[in-house]
Nucleic acid binder design. Sequence first.
DNA 1: CGTACTATTGATAGATATCAACGCTGGTGG
DNA 2: CCACCAGCGTTGATATCTATCAATAGTACG
Lengths: 243, 243
Amino acid sequence: MPNMLTQKLELFGALPDEDRALLDEVAAQGHAVAARTDLIIEGDAPSDVHLVLEGFACRYKLMPDGRRHIFAFMLPGDFCDLNIFILKAMDHNIGTLTRCVIADIPRKRILEMVERPQLARALWWATLVDEATLREWLVNLGQRGAEQRIAHLLCEIHLRLQVIGLAGASSFKLPLTQEVIADTMGLSNVHVNRMLVKLRDDGLIEIEGRSIDLLDIKRIRAMCDFDPNYLHLEGGRETRASA
Amino acid sequence: MPNMLTQKLELFGALPDEDRALLDEVAAQGHAVAARTDLIIEGDAPSDVHLVLEGFACRYKLMPDGRRHIFAFMLPGDFCDLNIFILKAMDHNIGTLTRCVIADIPRKRILEMVERPQLARALWWATLVDEATLREWLVNLGQRGAEQRIAHLLCEIHLRLQVIGLAGASSFKLPLTQEVIADTMGLSNVHVNRMLVKLRDDGLIEIEGRSIDLLDIKRIRAMCDFDPNYLHLEGGRETRASA
DNA sequence: CGTACTATTGATAGATATCAACGCTGGTGG
DNA sequence: CCACCAGCGTTGATATCTATCAATAGTACG
């Protein structure tokens, strides 16, 4: 059973055994971090790259008035800051939302990884998918109403969790507060709540504690116009075959 | 007088003469493209990289109901699709907003560029700045009201145009329709208009035809909470010095 | 058994969309 | 040169969506 990082990266294309071994090594040891803890804050120039092994983390910025906006979720297998080699300082914060297990990967290790051509391409692919996700979120905030917005987020998280083996065909654990969802969607927590009960009343989702069940995936994807294309889940296979 | 691409990339750090020569060559020849013309559409797997030499272009997606969301402006010196080496297909469209001059750069050329370490780092930096801009736009849509949002956009465009020598201390040509701004900000064109007159009434901007004057830069930046940090305009200087 | 966080619901205010109308401007064909 | 046309900007009236404020209820956890 490959680790979740490998699992994700191989969506782009199978990796040589040495690459997989390197990834296993990198993902072998992590340390626990409590919920609501900052891993990196704005202005930092971290020397290690952080990899999420367990739990949910997020990128966020704080507004002068104290409001928080979250613009990315990092799930197991996601890197937090592969860019620290270039930019002098972080322009945003990264923090845990739940209890997490995080691996700190030294610069040297990353360079080893990037020297392997297939692995380098896979990492680049992962970065591009993150960027495409950001674009889709922008569309989400710009063009969709609150109900669609939340539905879209649920569809995305479901799919991303499936990829790393943490979601079933229609259900998954979502350890997020409604307030976290609100800060992600640019809505108030009250309105998020109302939209969630609406989704429930419409028979689109079921909520049991911290678990979500997408009762009719086809219908919920249609209503929020979810097109998984932007996640490029099979983006690289053909490229690899022809390379 | 360096071309605008060089001008932008050297914000990250001075480049060797050979690199500058290569960039000059790349930016030497472009072809005119009419306004409102698609350069690349969703699903394409373009073989050339497009570089804007003159005019405004944008990234956008179309919703099923015909709405358009714009999530990036490309100004002179900006690449459109440096990522085509990895992803199989574009997940969004790229089109001109005004008449443009575009350079089509063959794959081979890009590879030459990336083989030069300093240039490669500069290109990587440019990509990261694009991504950081996307994040800031997400915050913009999520957390700011319509008036702040538009002000923030104006501040950003002003600064980006300044960097490439196309804006004065406080004024610049903005060849964008209010409808384009609306599709960018997730607002209706009517509301964009109202907010622009409000900004004008508040003495923050002056509009003459297609030119904008930021009458009090300090004040407008304060009111929309514009912090140029995310553009990393001097992000690399120290890094280079210490490298 | 408190205590604090989270979820839920109602009432009201504020922001933004939508619909509709009109004027301005630049271009185009006769 | 003029009349017309299309796109854009502007303004008003109304409807819809979402935030805010306030209160209550569930829930986890020491």
